[in-house]
């Protein structure tokens, strides 16, 4: 494997992580707790897309090697994740008055409920989207980079989503309110922002992006009930590295953690005997180090 290919893989994996990290970071800062169900929200999105894609089929043409039907499924997956998150927030989280630690523990229960239901319906085995695997893009192979059009589609779609979020945050009313709330919820409320409504929108956006991330993760690897939970700690690592509450930090953190975990084989190339099996371990150690040295993350204000 060439370094270039590792970088390409890192880019793809980062795109998925970024989608997960943004939502986790938003919810962490606005709903004010570490949501352990976030990974399983991604799984919900992936499986909803699987069902939708099975139902609507390809719908004729295709873009970047992906049939139109897949993009419909992507939207449905994101929407389903958002709906599930909203329902959970309305039924469970909103009525609880037990502090952020209690909410954290509750969210573990929620994660198990999501995963249990998915596993009851689909079994514990791996599945895939019914899309044929593509051959690597021809003109990149001589450079030692073997990526398919699907991978390109993941990166482009993620970039579009992240760009859209940027526009939303910077240039719309809702975005300003969200940033104000992430900064200081009490001040935002005193200023006349309807914080409950903004919280709801935060859940919709965060979970929707997570759902889309889950769909891409299913396309990149495969689908399994554990896929989201397995990714959760990496997402936490990304969010903490970037700085909790900072959306742009989460993007940067997701990018860095994705790159680091995919570039682990480079360590062997330069003579450090740490193999790919420790890719996640490295990310977790980085997370702990960041927590110790710079708990506000690289993008957060140093206080």
């Amino acid at each position: 494997m060439s370094v270039l290919e590792l970088v390409a893989n890192g880019l793809i994996f980062s795109s998925i992580l970024v989608l997960g990290s943004i939502g986790l970071s938003l919810i962490y800062s606005i709903a004010n707790f570490a949501n352990f169900a976030h990974g399983d929200t991604m799984t919900v999105g992936a499986y909803s897309a699987l069902v939708t894609f099975g139902a609507v089929g390809g719908l004729g043409g295709s873009v970047l090697g992906l049939p139109y039907g897949f993009f419909v499924a992507l939207l449905v997956g994101a929407a389903a994740a958002a709906v599930v998150a909203i329902v959970t927030e309305k039924i469970i989280y909103e009525s609880l008055d037990i502090g952020s630690i209690g909410l954290l523990i509750t969210s573990i229960g929620i994660a198990f409920i999501y995963r249990g239901i998915i596993q009851i319906r689909f079994g514990a085995d791996f599945t895939r989207f019914d899309i044929g695997a593509l051959r690597p893009i021809e003109w990149l192979v001589p450079y030692g980079v073997r990526v398919t059009l699907h991978d390109v589609a993941i990166v482009i779609s993620a970039a579009v989503l992240v760009g859209g979020l940027h526009v939303l945050l910077q240039y719309t009313d809702l975005g300003r309110k969200m940033r104000a709330m992430a900064d200081n919820p009490d001040l935002a409320r005193i200023s006349g922002i309807r914080t409950k409504r903004v919280t709801l929108w935060t859940w919709i956006i965060g979970a929707g992006l997570a759902g889309a991330g889950g769909v891409f993760l299913g396309l990149f690897n495969q689908l399994a009930p554990r896929m989201g939970f397995n990714l959760l700690l990496l997402i936490f690592a990304a969010v903490i590295l970037g700085g909790i509450g900072s959306v742009y930090g989460a993007m940067l953190g997701g990018f860095l953690i994705g790159m680091i975990s995919q570039l682990t084989p480079v360590l062997k190339m330069v003579g450090i005997p740490i193999g790919i099996e420790y890719a996640n371990a490295i990310a977790f150690v980085i997370m702990v180090v960041v927590l110790l040295v710079r708990p506000n993350g690289i993008a957060g204000e140093a206080t």
Binding site: I105, T106, I108, G109, I110, A111, F112, I113, Y114, R115, G116, I117, I118, Q119, I120, A124, P225
Partner: peptide, 11 residues
């Protein structure tokens, strides 16, 4: 998975 679900509901 029922076990998982049960534990989740219990929490």
């Amino acid at each position: 998975p029922l076990r998982l679900l049960l534990i989740g509901v219990l929490i």
